[in-house]
Nucleic acid binder design. Structure first.
Lengths: 191, 191
DNA sequence: CGATTTTTTGAATCATATCAACGTACGTGG
DNA sequence: CCACGTACGTTGATATGATTCAAAAAATCG
């Protein structure tokens, strides 16, 4: 049993002990060291990952050969290459640990039968996707309406302790500008 | 009965005739003229809108008092202020018709009971949200990795007939730059 | 037809990228 | 525990893509 996962689900739907058991039986616990690759382009994404402990990033390498970070996954976040899963195509992204991590994997093949057995989990995943969509739309809003510098200040004010856990070049990549520019912002602020 | 909506659903899940009836009974058909406001900031978003015919846009007014287009909704697209619905807060966006439109509304209060009666629709909405999320992530990718000009060319190549249906300033807003800049891109191309 | 909306054009300006070099920190093997 | 190599961060000079403001021109609508 994975109480941490169950607690997260309880915020959306109420499961019976039997249903909780069905779910946890399907989850596979995996442990990774720092900087381990969990998924890479070309592979089919095995399923959806729930981060129990640690920190991962999802990114791809763009035309200019820069790493572009799509998402971070920290404790209690689901992460996956949904495009690969839904459209049955090879992944275009890497998923890699930043810190040593403990992660639960729900395999694609297990998901449909599980959701059929436990319809409340269908609701849970629907709501989770909806929240992810809202977050993604909000990120687009920030990209449109804030300068890079504003976005940096906003993000660090919002997640001060998270910013401590990642190297600056990853934050720059996630926010959509160069590490050099981030360095200049900080230099400016110190004055 | 709304065969167009049912056809769209059939691409994801198979409903029985009785289930189709249950769904269609809950949908409310609404007709709008050109430029009618369907939702505006401050109101709670009534539910999710499925466009049968016509064209709508979802946008908000940003700090610089410019309209920022979040999404277009054309035939067979769902559109809603999900943030308002999920978090029970007033909407931050407008939804407005661009062309005269026929739209089905699934009220928030009807959604939960409907999904309980017809669990396959729960699956349908989960998959629909997942696709919306993938599309949103892809849009972020374009914002990061393409210049405004590249994004314009890509979009018009991708949706040549859609681009004809909307004024240029709306396309500029959706793609995240000024109408003036769009005009300059076109001027350049003609040479 | 006039009124409004939409698009175009020019000049000045701004935000951020790029390239290149240098500085600093960090972790690993001897 | 030190030295070395690699990864990360800083800084300066120059280049570029896009914005802003203002005004005129063109298209659309009742």
């Amino acid at each position: 049993m994975y109480p941490q996962l169950l607690a997260h689900i309880k915020r959306q739907v109420q499961l019976t002990p039997a249903e909780e058991q069905l779910l946890c039986d399907r989850m596979e616990l995996k442990k990774f060291k720092k900087k381990e690759i969990i998924l890479e382009p070309g592979q089919h994404c095995k399923g959806e990952y729930f981060v129990l402990k640690g920190l991962v990033r999802q990114y791809y390498v763009n035309a200019k050969l820069n790493e572009q970070i799509v998402q971070f996954g920290l404790e209690n976040w689901w992460i996956a290459d949904h495009d690969s899963i839904v459209n049955h195509v090879p992944a275009g992204t890497y998923i890699q640990t930043i810190e040593a991590s403990e992660i639960l994997l729900l395999h694609n093949k297990d998901k449909a039968p599980l959701l059929e057995q436990v319809p409340k989990l269908e609701t849970y995943f629907r709501l989770t996707m909806q929240r992810a969509f809202i977050a993604s739309q909000r990120r687009i809003g920030f990209l449109f309406n804030q300068t890079d510098e504003e976005r940096f200040h906003y993000f660090t004010a919002m997640f001060p302790d998270f910013v401590q856990r990642i190297p600056q070049y990853m934050l720059a990549s996630y926010l959509g500008f160069t590490p050099q520019f981030l360095s200049r912002i900080r230099a400016k602020k110190e004055k």
